[in-house]
């Protein structure tokens, strides 16, 4: 599903955020990406979502070389990836329901389908009773669950999360991770960047360790 082949990213400032990163993640596999801040976790996720492009090497997503994806096609490309952010990135002037329905509106689903799927996604994260609320009235954990519902509502085969539990207490973090685990069980490839090593170890999934832009540890290839 995800294949990095000697991927490098050098920013215009000359800073090497990633150098020679190679790994492969199968469909339905879950992996944690860890390392100190500035180790290149976010950059790696950005290369997958085509927010940044590789400077050298290749990144293949579902067999497609990301450097060959034209700018015009990036929106279509991103519709197959659900992205979850540390700061949720919700629209605060719209209801929870409207936030979750947005990806379906963007991809041009008919209204009935939108209502059905948005409610199913909200139900999945346990927020069906909050669909008419505005995000500002929700707790941090609830906001993050809205973010997850929005990321999965289009049924993407790949889910990326950048420090999804960064601002949450341990119990809530564990709950969020359990939701990710459930998606993995139905065949979604999940990649989570996190520096919460204790929790990651308890989840017993593959762990990729980045240090200064290099992959220094992979629990699947010790």
């Amino acid at each position: 599903m995800i294949q990095f082949i000697q991927a490098c990213k050098r920013y215009e400032s000359g800073h090497d955020a990633l150098s020679n990163v190679s790994f492969e993640l199968q469909q339905g596999e879950m992996a944690f990406l860890t390392g100190h801040s500035g180790a290149g976790k976010s950059t790696l996720l950005k290369l997958i979502a085509l927010i940044e492009r590789t400077s050298r090497g290749q990144v293949l997503i579902n067999g497609e070389n990301t450097s060959k994806v034209k700018s015009r096609r990036i929106p279509m490309f991103r519709r197959n990836i659900g992205i979850i952010f540390q700061d949720h990135q919700l629209l605060f002037d719209r209801t929870v329901y409207d936030n979750v329905a947005l990806p379906l509106i963007i991809s041009g689903q008919p209204p009935r389908e939108i209502a059905r799927r948005a409610r199913a996604a909200l139900d999945k994260v346990g927020l069906l009773n909050k669909e008419k609320s505005f995000p500002i009235t929700l707790s941090g954990g609830e906001q993050q669950r809205v973010g997850i519902a929005r990321a999965v509502v289009n049924k993407p085969p790949l889910l990326l999360a950048d420090e999804p539990t960064g601002n949450l207490d341990p119990d809530l973090s564990w709950e969020i991770m359990q939701i990710f685990e459930q998606f993995r069980q139905v065949g979604v490839t999940v990649m989570v960047a996190s520096h919460d090593l204790d929790m990651i170890k308890r989840l017993q999934q593959r762990i990729l360790v980045l240090k200064n832009g290099q992959l220094v540890g992979d629990s699947a290839n010790p």
Partner: peptide, 22 residues
Amino acid sequence: MNDRNEPLFEDVEGRDRPGLLT
């Protein structure tokens, strides 16, 4: 995508591509 038929949610059958008219 090869796992498009895999339902994410048990209560939603996977109907991804609406018809042209729709």
